[in-house]
Amino acid sequence: MFEKISNQLKKAEKIVFVTGAGISQESGIPTFRGKDGLWRKYDPMKLATIDAFYEDPKLVWEWYEERRKNILAANPNPGHTAIAELEKYKQVSVLTQNIDGLHQRAGSTRVYELHGSIITIKCTVCDFKDKIVSSFSQLPPLCKCGNMLRPDVVWFGESLPQDVWKSAIEQASSCDVMVVVGTSLAVSPANLLPVYAKQNGATMIEVNIEQTPMSSSMDISLRSSAASTLPVLVSTISE
């Protein structure tokens, strides 16, 4: 199986990775929904929405500050590093549902953050946007214009950033191989990305410790972790 995947990767000119919470979990970042998920007594669907934010902005900010501290304390794992390493040999793009910035910290240069970034903030009214550089003296933090700042993430019910989504479609539609890592792609519209890749005749590879709804439509599906599998695959290309 590894040899078959290795051959596909060697032949490919452009490889696109679609990544989700599974690869970040291997860096010690808790998932929303897992039994060890953050703030288990709260329903993420009721925290990660614009309505929840306006109903109790301090609570939502406390939740995101907790998540941000966990993320900043984490490090990229060998899965992230292998994807970045592959750029030495192939044209590689990463379309990620994760908001943690670990792909960039690992060295990947073409990363499209479909759901935004927990490292940046934006104003709820004006066009202000910036990276978070330290803890806030008050929650919710306020913009210079006097309105509330919010995490620059895509909440349930919100549209993806259209420029990022357009670029993601272009990347998916032009790749030779798509590797779906650590995500069931249950969330729309990210679940359309494999469709665009397939229309281009791309080879579809899944790396996930669990079977997913996408598994049956993949050309190759590996039941293993990104941190253990991706470094081995990349090493075969560099030989």
Rank of each mutant, 00 (worst) to 15 (best):
F32K: 10
E65A: 12
Q25G: 14
L86W: 11
E26T: 03
A12G: 11
L102A: 07
I118K: 00
W39S: 08
R33K: 13
V60E: 04
E113L: 03
D51E: 15
N98S: 08
K46M: 11
A73L: 01
K14I: 11
G34T: 07
E66Y: 14
G34W: 12
S108C: 05
Y64V: 00
Q25Y: 13
A21G: 09
A48I: 11
G101T: 10
P76E: 10
V18N: 04
W61N: 08
M45N: 13
K90N: 08
D43Y: 00
Y89S: 12
A74E: 06
V111C: 06
D36L: 04
I50M: 13
F32M: 09
I15N: 08
H103P: 02
L59W: 13
G79D: 09
Y54L: 12
L72F: 00
I99N: 05
L95K: 10
E113M: 05
E55G: 03
E66P: 04
P30V: 02
R68M: 06
D36V: 01
L72T: 13
I71N: 12
A52L: 02
D56K: 14
S108V: 04
S93M: 01
E26C: 04
V16N: 06
T81G: 01
K58I: 02
T19V: 03
V111S: 11
E85F: 09
V16Y: 09
G34R: 07
E62K: 12
F53H: 06
K35P: 14
T109K: 15
E66I: 07
L72H: 04
I50T: 14
D43F: 10
L72E: 15
M45K: 14
H80F: 03
L86K: 03
I119D: 15
I119Q: 15
E26Q: 12
S117F: 03
F53D: 12
W63Y: 15
T31P: 05
M45W: 11
T109G: 04
F53P: 13
W39F: 15
F32H: 05
V94S: 06
P44L: 00
R40L: 05
V18I: 14
L59E: 12
S24Q: 09
H103T: 01
G28W: 09
L38Y: 14
R40I: 03
K14R: 15
N98Y: 08
G22Q: 10
A12W: 07
R105I: 05
Y112R: 11
L86N: 06
P30N: 06
G107I: 12
Y64Q: 06
W61L: 00
S93I: 04
I15E: 07
I29F: 09
P78F: 07
K11T: 09
K35Y: 13
D100T: 00
V16Q: 10
G22T: 07
I99V: 15
I99H: 02
L95N: 05
D56G: 05
L114W: 12
G20T: 08
S108E: 06
N77D: 01
V60G: 07
E26N: 06
N98F: 05
A74G: 01
E87C: 08
R110Q: 14
L59Y: 13
L72N: 13
Y89F: 14
G116L: 03
L38C: 01
G116S: 01
W61G: 09
Q104W: 07
A82H: 10
